[in-house]
């Protein structure tokens, strides 16, 4: 909790905590942070017992949809989403991996049909050595967590 103090507390809203520093920008992209019009505080390279360095995002007055939660799970399965009301954590959403994901992630295989024709992507989600692997429904190739690219 101490490290959270380094970033301003919010009265109500969402705190995405325990983000691996390397995942921060992808998570910002996936939740389309630039479209939000409320106060946002971002901390990066904060000390963390678990990872060495972590990142945190605080978004005032907004609460995540299930879809957002699932998206964050794919990028960083260890992230924790806290719902804040009255400066207190009222709910902790430990992100959970969905079995399948569609539409918003790009298949890494340049020869895949989804990169040649207007086809919505679709993947089954697998975890290997703590990392997310997405197996394409079409070309059957695997896109690893570090190569996940968001379609905007």
């Amino acid at each position: 909790m101490k490290s959270e103090l380094k970033v301003k507390a919010i009265e109500k809203g969402t705190v995405i905590d325990h983000i691996q520093a390397s995942s921060l920008y992808k998570i910002m992209s996936i939740i389309e942070i630039e479209k939000l019009d409320t106060q946002i505080f971002i901390g990066n390279n904060l000390d963390s017992k678990k990872y060495g360095k972590k990142a945190i995002i605080k978004i005032a007055d907004k609460f995540p949809s299930m879809e957002d939660v699932n998206k964050i799970a794919l990028i960083d399965p260890n992230a924790v989403i806290n719902i804040i009301r009255d400066y207190q954590v009222v709910e902790k959403k430990k992100v959970e991996l969905p079995e399948t994901v569609s539409t918003f992630i790009k298949c890494i295989n340049p020869k895949c049909i989804t990169n040649h024709e207007k086809v919505e992507t679709k993947f089954s989600v697998h975890v290997k050595d703590g990392k997310v692997n997405l197996k394409c429904y079409y070309c059957e190739k695997t896109t690893g967590q570090d190569n996940i690219e968001v379609i905007r």
């Binding site: 049909i113 989804t114 079409y138 070309c139």
Partner: peptide
């Protein structure tokens, strides 16, 4: 078809 996943699609 030379494109991968084309038959599934």
């Amino acid at each position: 078809h030379p494109v991968e996943g084309s038959a599934r699609y």
